[in-house]
Design a protein around this nucleic acid. Structure first.
Lengths: 351, 351
DNA sequence: CTGAAAGCGCTTACAG
DNA sequence: CTGAAAGCGCTTACAG
């Protein structure tokens, strides 16, 4: 059996509206109307044309339609990297509802590289995307003005600078972090650390804020030495945790900027011969699908990633329908209690 | 500060080639040539036109260009779900090299739903993508004939049915699985289990094949009761492991279809009060970025996901350049030894 | 209910 | 080196 190998050169032309007009002995205008279910064309004609189109394997050109209608039914999604369960979850939500509404999504990684970011903006402009969703990326901060120029709806998801130019979907960082830290306080912890994210900007500031407020309302002193920074990777979480474990008086609990950091923190604790939660309790943020299977299963704040993606896409759709609304959607996180948290030194909580 | 809220209705037209032709007092043909660096146009003219275009914020329409050139510089990527570290890693590789070559990627989730799969195929046809990459999806199996009809290069990545219609990038399952299992044999294990993936088709068959061959060459009997099936999720890995632990004589080691299954298996072992690797050694497959931080860090077969994505995209580019080559790319897995494997009962290996 | 015509914004032979 | 013209495959007023 000889392989059917495609070569770029031999592309055969797909059948067009004209071809089927010829077969049906009508004008191509009529074909267009029939295929678009225009009520003005006789239903028999519609049927006949559809049948012919079907037989001919006709597939309308979205390109030509876009040019004529000036709508591409396309949205651009930019993420720092898709190889990250948070971004992937969000994109999954976006793509699913986009598809349900006849929209296709262009996915672009920025890799936190300014040049790539510029390229992405440019590409989306040239592709004439109808809308843009930016997920937790620096693109928003740096190039929002450029994106804005395109005059299409832009929705920022957990982005650092929800400016006056764009709509947004954001997790409510502060109350969630407050709740997480407060839970540690209630368990009886007195030395609670925070491992932040150096490049987390507003998200980090807010999560830190919730931590700090919970300490205050628990009447615990704020100890600067208990706040260290990573970069949102397990490796950096390990380093940060190592620093905390090296303290004269080490913390008995640590609240982490995100799950990846928490996973690294747990690894470091174990590598140091200590146990989670007996020696150190750990809380993450995100509730990535895997952390319920970590050892021990991780207590964390759930961010409904898929839903957030859905909300962002729905905001775009609403804006495209001409609604003049402003979308500033706040999503609540939820504390999910698992086995990585316990009273200090494994003592049972009393009161 | 009043928010600038975009409404779908008010879209302003971007500046076109005609607008800048008017400013430059040349024909739009000349503008087109200048912008495309056609050597026939006088370099001063080119410069002047470029400057004007720059000032006017001109951004050429990829839509119009696609219609004229019949090339969209677009490729369609279909995955079962992007919310999966394997798919996400592959897509990251694809998108990065696509972007480097001026291609944009349409991402579509099939969610293993036949209707969605059909829709994806249809969409890619209408969008006139220049090429398609299908990642570990049933789409390949079910709708390859439909995709083939489009007459564009199709590259299957770890797909079940690399048929005669498409090009492929695949991990070499058998030697990798053989190596993993053989490693367990060398450690001294005599009862080695395999947790497969019910829907894994060819991949599962091959990984099982490697397992089986390694048993043979280690002169170990094949015990059907030591082969159980999950579905590639941690939950299913837990169930499968529970079944193995319930055996009269339980295995001392288990080779898993993938890392997600292995993570579930480890969780179950720990939940049963046993230890990895002391009581049961575990090996996964994939080397997802997180498993080096699992407890204990997971021994696994590394699949170079990003590279595989790159290779798939490069194959598409090669085919688009008119090469008549056939691409059947085999990638070798690599055994990464970490702490989830040890001799049975923690005995030190002797010999 | 249907057709002829114009137009969407480009590219590219064909002339000069 | 540059322009006029045709065409890519659709949609959509405008007529009838």
């Amino acid at each position: 059996l000889r392989k059917r190998v495609h070569s770029g050169a031999e592309t055969a032309n797909p059948v067009s509206i004209k071809d089927i007009a010829r077969s049906a002995k009508v004008s191509h205008s009529t074909v267009s109307r029939a295929l678009n279910n225009n009520p003005r064309v006789k239903s028999e004609t519609v049927e006949r044309i559809r049948r012919i189109a079907e037989e001919a394997g006709y597939r309308g050109s979205a390109i030509a339609r876009s040019l004529a209608t000036r709508r591409t039914k396309t949205i651009g999604v930019v993420v720092t990297t898709i190889a990250d369960l948070f971004a992937a979850g969000v994109v999954n939500g976006i793509e699913t509802v986009a598809g349900d509404h006849g929209y296709s999504v262009f996915l672009a990684n920025s890799n936190a590289d300014p040049e790539r970011e510029m390229r992405v903006v440019r590409t989306f402009e040239e592709r004439r995307v109808d809308g843009i969703i930016v997920t937790a990326s620096r693109v928003g901060a740096l190039h929002l003005p450029l994106l804005t120029r395109m005059n299409v709806p832009i929705v920022l998801l957990n982005n650092q600078h929800p400016s006056e130019f764009a709509h947004s979907v954001m997790i409510e960082n502060l109350p969630a972090s407050y709740e997480a830290t407060q839970y540690l306080v209630e368990l009886g912890h007195r030395r609670i650390a925070y491992i932040g994210e150096r490049n987390g900007r507003q998200s980090d500031t807010e999560r830190f804020g919730g931590y700090r407020q919970a300490l205050d309302s628990g009447r615990l002193p704020f100890e600067p030495e208990l706040v260290v920074y990573g970069s949102g990777t397990p490796e950096s979480g390990m380093d940060a945790m190592a620093a905390l474990l090296g303290l004269a008086e080490r913390p008995t609990a640590v609240f982490c900027y995100d799950d990846m950091t928490a996973i690294g923190a747990m690894r470091q604790i174990h590598a140091s011969g200590l146990k989670v939660p007996h020696d150190v309790s750990v809380i993450g943020f995100d509730d990535l699908s895997i952390v319920q299977f970590s050892e021990p299963p991780l207590t964390t704040i759930r961010q409904p990633m898929w839903e957030m993606g859905r909300l962002a896409m729905e905001a775009v759709l609403d804006l495209l329908s001409g609604s003049g609304s402003t979308h500033e959607i706040k999503v609540r996180g939820e504390l999910i209690i698992r086995a990585s948290t316990a009273p200090p030194n494994g003592k049972v909580l009393e009161r």
